[in-house]
Design a protein around this nucleic acid. Structure first.
Lengths: 253, 253
DNA sequence: CGCCTTGTTGAAAACACTCAACTAGAGTGG
DNA sequence: CCACTCTAGTTGAGTGTTTTCAACAAGGCG
């Protein structure tokens, strides 16, 4: 699939690699050497159109994907044409770092908008784990936070439709704000109501009705690719949202 | 909390540590040295009565827990007294290896029966990550498989009550069989219908009705602490259960 | 223009929840 | 010994939420 030959990353991509570095440094400081080693592990940059499946479930994967720009989902295709999105990824996210260990993924990785991604060959990452124990633990931490978000999603499915959608919006807002792609007042959201249903485990029809309720309650207005949040505190209260589970704080590890 | 002084593990516990070693060796071979290093990182062994909370959410944790015997759950307490069990752990499971990276957990760890656990101090595990890259990757793999099971649970909640419960039974059967605690015909299941509801996101009343349906359809008979499965293939077909996501196969890593 | 996708709304059906009552068994204290 | 209480399981009836089926409007695109 992907070319084995590393292509030189442009300044633009180096800039977006900085998003990953910032995500890591939010948790612990990196040495200059570690930053260099990580940057060196990055190879090819690719651009994919919306709807493209970057990685198909159970296929053998030889690299991990860093999302540079766009929106990307991890998707299960279930019986009777239903699908469930089990994770959403924003710029700066290491989408499938876990494939370094698993080699085959249980889910597809799908572009939900046009995306730019950087590929980190597993051979390079694996070499890194041999010599950089601290950096390895920090990458391990990313996969473990990924698991924490999964757990939050499990709990989300125990709530009513309105709360589910509100929680998802809160999570997206918090994560997007960190990378400068959202304010407390809202963010760009180029998801169809059908995709929103795949995230929250609801039918498109019910998503539609529920969005109307949220709109009428003035909690969140979703339209034309924009999520407008009149009062974030009120939305968070309604969703009982507490961003602690995202483990954003700095903890020396 | 836990004593810092390592206590000598009895032969019985060494035997059960073997369950962890087997779980690891199922994925990749360990050197004799690695086996010794891992065993040396194990300290105190504790016994807890059913219902006890071993680890409380957001408290500072200084060790990771290996389950030696009994059943153990990872639990979220949600609003209005509801709770959601986000993971079940069997003997041989490293219950909270992720706490090595996170330091504080987003959930409680609760004994669902009398349990025996072995504690691995974080200082010892962390020292291990400094010198044992291969062993580190294998531990990392365990946390990543944990995430894969989370994803399966997310998808589970998109199905009907009967399928949810059937899937849970199938997962438990497959995992228990691996450690010799289940046959294809059934296993001991000391969970109340209420706890089964906490796992599947259903009310106890609805669990009861659904278990009756499963019983009447001769798919699974749950009673008196026993899960009897007349025809595992049929149950798996009904639940559309495919154990691949447990990543049981051997893959050199 | 026709065709597709997306969003929207209505009505009926399916599903799961709530409230309530009752059984059975285990454990307790008089 | 019994009465009492507690937990776990069971069942019925009514309610509420979500899904399904269906139809239709609006916009993009060949």
């Amino acid at each position: 699939m992907a070319a084995e030959v590393p292509t030189h990353a442009s300044r633009d991509d180096e800039e977006t690699l900085a998003t990953l570095l910032r995500a890591l440094e939010r948790r612990d400081t990196l040495s200059e050497h570690e930053r260099v080693v990580l940057a060196a592990a990055m190879a090819e940059v690719r651009v994919c159109p919306p709807g493209e499946t970057l990685i198909r479930a159970w296929s053998s994967v030889e690299y991990s994907t860093l999302l540079l720009s766009g929106l990307l989902g991890r998707v299960f295709y279930m019986s009777e044409g239903k699908r469930q999105i089990v994770a959403m990824h924003l710029p700066g996210d290491f989408v499938d770092l876990h494939s370094l260990l698993l080699k085959r993924l249980d889910h597809d990785v799908v572009a939900l908008s046009e995306v730019r991604v950087a590929l980190f060959p597993h051979v390079a990452l694996r070499r890194l784990t041999e010599t950089e124990p601290h950096l390895t633990r920090m990458l391990w931490l990313l996969t473990v936070i990924d698991g924490a978000i999964h757990r939050e999603w499990i709990c989300r499915l125990g709530h009513s439709a309105a709360v589910r959608i509100a929680q998802f919006l809160c999570e997206l807002q918090a994560r997007l704000e960190l990378v400068g792609l959202a304010t407390r007042a809202g963010f760009a959201l180029h998801l169809t109501q059908s995709e929103l249903g795949d995230v929250t485990g609801l039918t498109p029809v019910h998503v539609n009705r529920t969005l109307r309720k949220l709109r009428e309650a003035n909690l969140a207005i979703i339209r034309e690719g924009q999520a407008v949040i009149p009062d974030l505190a009120r939305l968070r209260e309604f969703a009982r949202f507490d961003p602690t589970y995202l483990y954003l704080e700095k903890r020396p590890r």
